[in-house]
């Protein structure tokens, strides 16, 4: 059966740490950093369960700032 592999790339400097992508991800791939901040001082979204991402793009769709690019690869 084909499996979907996904990856997200977060534009860290554009991210405001609103957490909406984290909530939107059905597979809990993303989380906000707890210590690291970007130049504006925001904790930013990053992948914590990268292997489970299917590239559904829910995170990117709800992101108000267009910070997330999503890639998807289908593997037979």
């Amino acid at each position: 059966m084909a499996k979907m592999y996904g990856a997200t790339v977060v534009n860290v400097e554009r991210c405001k740490g609103c957490n909406l992508c984290v909530v939107a991800c059905p597979l809990h791939v993303l989380a906000l950093t707890t210590k690291e901040v970007n130049r504006k001082g925001y904790n930013y979204a990053h992948e914590v369960l990268a292997d489970t991402c299917t590239g559904c793009a829910s995170c990117a769709t709800v992101c108000p700032d267009g910070c997330i690019t999503v890639y998807r690869l289908k593997s037979e």
Partner: peptide
Amino acid sequence: IIEKGQVVYKK
């Protein structure tokens, strides 16, 4: 995935 995959969402 990033190299070979398709972009399904971008700004």
